[in-house]
C-alpha cells in the first residue's frame, strides 16, 4: 500500500455521501482523539474512530473496507464526549449503510440460526445484529 493519498475530485464523494446519510458535519473534526480513547472497542479496530473521521474527511475509501465500522456497536460514548459535538455513531452508521444499501449484508442468517439454537441467544441479540448488519 502506498503511503501517498491522491486527493482527486471524485474522492470527495465519500464525504458528501457520509454527510448526507448521517446529517453530521465531518469536517468539524479536529482530530483530538477523544473518541478513540472513549471507545471500548478501539483496540480491536483497524481504523481508530478518529482515524475513521480523518479518512472520511480525506475521502480515503479504504475505510469502507475496514473491520472497524462493523466492530462499532453504536454505544454513543464517542458521541457524548466529542468536544465538537459530532455524532460519530451516526457517521459510522453512514459508512455501514453505504455497504448495506448495495445489498451487501455483513452477516449471514444461515450461520446465525445454527448458532442461535446452540447458544440460546436472546432475541434482541439476533434482531439487533440483523438490523445493523443487513440491508
Amino acid at each position: 500500500m502506498s503511503n501517498v493519498i491522491h486527493i482527486e475530485e471524485e474522492e470527495n464523494e465519500l464525504l458528501a455521501k457520509v454527510e448526507e446519510i448521517s446529517g453530521e458535519t465531518v469536517t468539524l473534526c479536529e482530530q483530538c482523539g477523544i473518541c478513540t480513547t472513549s471507545c471500548p472497542m478501539a483496540e480491536e479496530m483497524d481504523f481508530t474512530p478518529a482515524g475513521i473521521m480523518h479518512a472520511v474527511k480525506l475521502g480515503d475509501k479504504n475505510v469502507l473496507d475496514s473491520k472497524a465500522i462493523w466492530i462499532c456497536a453504536s454505544c454513543f460514548t464517542c458521541t457524548v464526549r466529542c468536544p465538537r459535538g459530532i455524532d460519530l455513531a451516526k457517521v459510522t452508521e453512514a459508512l455501514r449503510q453505504i455497504h448495506l444499501r448495495k445489498n451487501k449484508d455483513h452477516v449471514n442468517l444461515e450461520e446465525v440460526k445454527e448458532e442461535e439454537q446452540e447458544e440460546n441467544l436472546p432475541p434482541i441479540a439476533l434482531v439487533s445484529a440483523l438490523r445493523k448488519f443487513t440491508g
Partner: peptide, 20 residues
C-alpha cells in the same frame, strides 16, 4: 459501569465480546 459490553458483536465477533 457505563462502558459497552460489545452488544450484538456476539453474533459476528464473539471473540471481541469475550475480551470485553
Amino acid at each position: 459501569k457505563n462502558e459497552c459490553c460489545g452488544s450484538y458483536n456476539i453474533i459476528t465477533n464473539r471473540e471481541a465480546v469475550v475480551e470485553r
